[in-house]
Nucleic acid binder design. Structure first.
Lengths: 151, 151
DNA sequence: TGAGTTAGTTGCTATAAGCAACTCATATGC
DNA sequence: GCATATGAGTTGCTTATAGCAACTAACTCA
């Protein structure tokens, strides 16, 4: 494959765009905190142990990208709540996939708490690349196809 | 929820461990390149436009973490090939989830090339958190449960 | 009114990223 | 066999990002 083709492949991929929004250090950990119920500056700061100026900067950026929403608390005007937007909530598959990978290949120990299906009370399935019908696919069952090639 | 509990929740999560391995700038883009067939230093460098010293450092770290494998080419002793290990290949769900999120929420345009099921020649399903039986679950259908609580 | 809380900001230092030029071992063409 | 090119880095220097400690300003609560 010639280099020109690589350039094209990699230029038409949304991964760099995604990383631009959430690829900085601490961003994922702040989002994990938000998924676990953190919502105030001091909560994020003391729980994550992140430097205050960095946290401030990251929160501004996540809000600018529409991933978190910043709302002054009307009841206590010192307080500000940061909550996930739809855009932010849709990052859950990314966080869970990374966490499961870390669990299996890095830390080696099961994480806690566990995300469970409310109905069955059973833990969620491992994140996997799947066919339209939901069947998990291995790398051998996958191939890259140029969009234009798709009938 | 008191702060002590947050500390515990976040300490028992494998996400920080995962980020330690692949959370640095460029790591994901290097891995994306590897999934797309890049294997040589000069290929990564010219395709990604990454500084040579940073690329060198990132490749060393990914090899140290067992995510890439470094092999001198016996046919041309100047060349070295970097290939994904099983540990590296299992990061595909993370990369795909991020790419799909970026596609939907940041770039707004479909990425190319597309990952398809070799059998059906149809694109893969969107990455989602799913129940054991493969059913996609929304955030409302999910809850965090302490591991010890599980029957 | 005075102490404590919340969400930051400021100034300074340390670590990481980026750039250009260079090295060194090999390969290739004449 | 020698000049030239290639592949995989390394070195030195500059710029950007992260981390730390101390400070501020608005507000709350006793």
């Amino acid at each position: 494959m010639i280099e020109r083709e690589y350039q094209k492949i990699l230029a038409e991929c949304a991964l760099p765009a995604a990383l631009e929004a959430v690829g900085e250090r601490w961003s994922f950990l702040i989002l994990r905190g938000a998924f676990n119920g953190l919502s105030h500056f001091e909560e994020f700061q003391s729980t994550l142990g992140i430097a205050r100026n960095i946290l401030s900067n990251r929160l501004v950026r996540l809000v600018e990208h529409g991933i978190l929403q910043r709302d002054p608390d009307p009841a206590d005007r010192r307080k500000v709540t940061y909550t996930l937007t739809d855009k932010g909530r849709e990052l859950l598959p990314v966080l869970i996939a990374l966490r499961q990978w870390g669990e299996r290949w890095v830390s080696g120990v099961p994480s806690n708490p566990v995300l469970v299906d409310r109905a069955s009370q059973r833990p969620i399935a491992p994140m996997a690349v799947r066919a339209e019908d939901g069947r998990p696919l291995s790398l051998q069952e996958l191939m890259w196809v140029d969009r234009a090639q798709l009938q």
